[in-house]
């Protein structure tokens, strides 16, 4: 099923050096890769940014899952290639497809190697988000909690989706039958139960949280504290330098596609 693609964004609970990096530093690395890949369409640069991540994926021992998610993304990348091939030059189509694969790889690298708990802690540290959360929701850590929950629920929802698909196929529903309109309509029996399950689950979650005293008071402490290690500072430095350099080059030079 197409749900295989989600595997590439699911956290793998391993303890590799990549998993142990500070989530904030890792996030900055993601931005450090995304910024140049969105600013430039140079094929060499995009390939290099893609290749740089391969050793990281290998150290994080998630290469197989990454390949799986790429395989699931083949259809979309083919679509991007074809559309751009007919609307512009070939190199452009190649560059944009490469960019898509690169973005997918980067995000899947981040989500596969960062536990939702670490991510929540990291977001909780950002003053701006705490301020925003206090303004909107009345509590400083409500927003970061919302985000963590959303990330955490993805695999659960994927399991639910599979069960719903199985249940409806057992009732004779054939998803890939009929013309385009019919095919879209085929998904109604999948989406409605899934939506209702999600709503019901969130209500239950809210009650369970309230029962455990969420959201608590201003000075909430946490069991684990995030701390930068030397390697995190190094990563931070490289990423920041990369971002600054990218913008500088972008405003001063014109970089060709090939």
């Amino acid at each position: 099923m197409s749900l295989r693609v989600l595997n590439g964004f699911k956290f793998s609970s391993l303890k590799t050096p990549v998993h142990r990096l500070d989530p904030r530093a890792k996030f900055l690395l993601v931005i450090g890769i995304i910024v140049p890949s969105l600013l430039f369409t140079n094929i060499y640069l995009l390939s290099a940014l893609l290749l740089v991540q391969v050793p990281l994926l290998m150290v994080g021992r998630v290469t197989r899952r990454w390949v799986q998610s790429l395989r699931a993304g083949v259809f979309l990348s083919a679509l991007i290639f074809v559309v751009n091939f007919f609307t512009g030059p070939l190199v452009n189509a190649v560059a944009l497809t490469l960019r898509f694969l690169l973005l997918m790889t980067t995000f899947s690298f981040f989500f596969m190697t960062t536990s939702p708990d670490d991510l929540g802690l990291a977001i909780d540290k950002v003053g701006f988000i705490r301020w925003l959360s206090r303004r909107w929701l009345g509590y400083p850590n409500a927003l970061s909690f919302t985000f963590t929950t959303a990330v955490r629920l993805v695999p659960t929802m994927a399991v639910d989706a599979q069960t719903v698909v199985d249940a409806q196929r057992s009732r004779g529903l054939e998803l890939d039958k009929g013309n385009l309109l019919k095919r879209v309509r085929n998904y109604i029996p999948i989406l409605i139960p899934l939506l209702l399950i999600a709503i019901r689950r969130s209500l239950e979650l809210a009650e369970a949280l309230e029962a455990r005293g969420f959201p608590g008071k201003e000075g909430r402490t946490s069991l684990f504290e995030l701390q930068f290690k030397p390697v995190d500072y190094l990563l931070l430095g490289i990423s920041l330098a990369g971002i600054v350099l990218s913008f500088w080059v972008f405003f001063h030079y014109h970089v060709p596609t090939i």
Binding site: V164, A167, S170, R171, G172, P189, P193, I197, R200
Partner: peptide, 14 residues
């Protein structure tokens, strides 16, 4: 499925 009908555990899934 025409011959083998499966009733899933949770009715909310269907």
């Amino acid at each position: 499925s025409r011959k083998v009908g499966i009733v899933f555990q949770n009715p909310d899934h269907l």
